[in-house]
Write a protein that binds this DNA or RNA. Structure first.
Lengths: 205, 205
DNA sequence: TAGATTGTTAATCGATTAACAATC
DNA sequence: TAGATTGTTAATCGATTAACAATC
């Protein structure tokens, strides 16, 4: 048990390590070193070792880390050694793409519902899901104890819907709307805004 | 003129400031303070002032910042006071969603081409674009002097296509494939991987 | 054993915050 | 003018790197 507060920057890197380990594992490799893993993800070996050692002694001197073992440990730490039900709010193009994305389930997530308030979209089939009426959203969130949501609606509606999600018990929001959200301290938000990400690179051009 | 190297973390925050200012501007506000802007984006007033002051004295004591003026300056700094042609590689669900996204053009970007290597997709119309043969990609990149690309292909093909993009002169890649890319120092990559972003939040649940 | 690589400490480097004189 | 808020300095805080003893 580790009582120390782990810095957010370290937590943010762990999924990247896990993703790289998954790829090594897929290609049949069983063992890696902090040097090799660091080369893969563009981070120094010292930092990799420091990050991992926050949670225990998962490596062996001389031989490095067992990939399956380290993956298990990282999954435990990140709490993705289970399947989280995730909802999508907004059945536009982005909502569609996420609903059909095959990459969630082996990384700890299942899209279990998708909502919209547009009558022409409600009832529509997307993959194995049917678009549900947004008016029922908070009720369904509570019934199914949903903690994780992805928000793919216009910026103008995003804060209001966020307030509903939070009120219904959602604690993690992946926000695709191009706006900063206001949430209580115990609710986490991650932002995905392609224009913002592009603007982080043009400075260097 | 500022010869000092501006830290990457500051550059990464500027698009967020710009986005918040745009929203204030849209709602008719003409002036803001570091305190108010900071409240909007969840960053301390001191940090906002420090960040902005790296580039000049854009505010006025007593009254704060003129929103249109500060937006102009941030756009100049980020080089989004112009329109960048951007290509999409991969015409799957995500490529579709990005090709039809309306949020680029007023933030400095125009999607000008989309490529795929799947014969059933080549020739397909998406919005105002037609899916082009990936075999022509490097040629078209050179012809049109493309510097920015979005990558929405499976992880297995991502590094190979990245090498082609780099070889053809692309300097900024927004990568939607769930894999870390290897690029030269003068090429920037931003990562968008919804599963990774979700995994950054489950730790806290 | 000899070589390799971890976990950890101490040193360095960088980023954030607090405080306030300057000034609109 | 009086109040508000900037730009900037110094202090604090936190993160990264380098180095190496421990050990597989």
């Amino acid at each position: 048990m580790n009582a120390e507060k782990i810095p957010d920057v370290i937590i943010a890197r762990l999924p990247v390590y896990l993703r790289a380990l998954q790829r090594m594992s897929d290609s049949g490799v069983k063992t890696t070193s902090s040097k090799e893993l660091g080369d893969h993800v563009g981070i120094s070996a010292a930092q990799i070792r420091k990050d991992i050692s926050q949670f225990g002694e998962f490596g062996k001197q001389g031989t490095g880390y067992s990939i399956p073992y380290l993956m298990d440990k990282l999954r435990e730490i990140l709490k993705v050694d289970r399947l989280w039900d995730v909802i999508i709010v907004g059945a536009g193009d982005m909502g569609h793409a996420l609903a059909r994305y095959q990459g969630f389930v082996n990384r700890g997530f299942v899209v279990s519902m998708i909502f919209d308030n547009d009558p022409t979209k409600i009832g529509q089939q997307i993959g194995s899901l049917v678009v549900e009426n947004a008016r029922l959203m908070t009720e369904k969130i509570r019934q199914n104890n949903i903690k994780v949501a992805m928000l793919t609606i216009p910026a103008a509606a995003a804060q209001e819907v966020t307030d509903q999600l939070v009120e219904a018990g959602v604690k993690a929001i992946l926000n695709y709307a191009p706006i900063s959200l206001n949430v209580p301290d115990d609710v986490k938000v991650q932002y995905i805004d392609p224009a913002t990400h592009l603007q982080r690179m043009t400075y260097y051009l």
